[in-house]
Design a protein around this nucleic acid. Sequence first.
DNA 1: ATAGATGCAAAGGGTTTGCACTTGA
DNA 2: TCAAGTGCAAACCCTTTGCATCTAT
Lengths: 124, 124
Amino acid sequence: MQRETKQRDAIRLVFEQHAPPLLPGEVLRLARREVPSLSLATVYRALNALAREGVIQPVALPAEAPRYEKAGKRHHHHFVCRRCRRVFEVPACAGSMRRMVPAGFVMDDHEITLYGACADCRRR
Amino acid sequence: MQRETKQRDAIRLVFEQHAPPLLPGEVLRLARREVPSLSLATVYRALNALAREGVIQPVALPAEAPRYEKAGKRHHHHFVCRRCRRVFEVPACAGSMRRMVPAGFVMDDHEITLYGACADCRRR
DNA sequence: ATAGATGCAAAGGGTTTGCACTTGA
DNA sequence: TCAAGTGCAAACCCTTTGCATCTAT
């Protein structure tokens, strides 16, 4: 990503304006507000480039297609609502994971995903 | 899955003999030892059926294709070795996840995945 | 001017499905 | 016997890629 184009600006803007991790298709839909001619291929290319540059980061959730969110957030995890399928940021962490690591293994990262019903779906 | 066929027996057997979560392709390879003519389509159909029946359960790991393992194991999580890509069972759990749940949300399940180097890869 | 970026359509990789044939009960 | 199960190939869905065109520098 060496040039500044209106497509890439639009895609970067989407991540500035949306906190939850987004699917490529959602990025396309949102960025088309700025650039209606935007194609999905360009979105994929931009997502890969922006991720390589560290502007956004991939968010892999179990049984979910890969999403992306703005990079540089502080440590957090995600909550997946089983009803509306929305993904929420959870600013907390469980801590004590070190003791889960089997003897002889070395852990360098961990991922926690919570499942359940979000507040909105709960009310209904 | 109402009939007993040699294909399905072979697939069930694979899960009896292999603890770590398996990919469909691995199931095919292993089950072909019993039934060489086995097709991938049959594996997929059997995996879906066995999962529906609760004989096996899907194991969804972030950024990994869905795997399956024998159902009924006690609560555990998984460790993914970044070097050899093998998946290990971790019999422990971090506990204290309740406090991560945002106000108004209800959590009914959680998934923890640890990443790093397994003992074998560590030695090298 | 020209290398990089875009859009389209085709190609890939993994999973599912339609259909004729086979087989368990 | 005959509905359920199998194997094959085609269909699907999502992501990547080839290529002609466009455009930022």
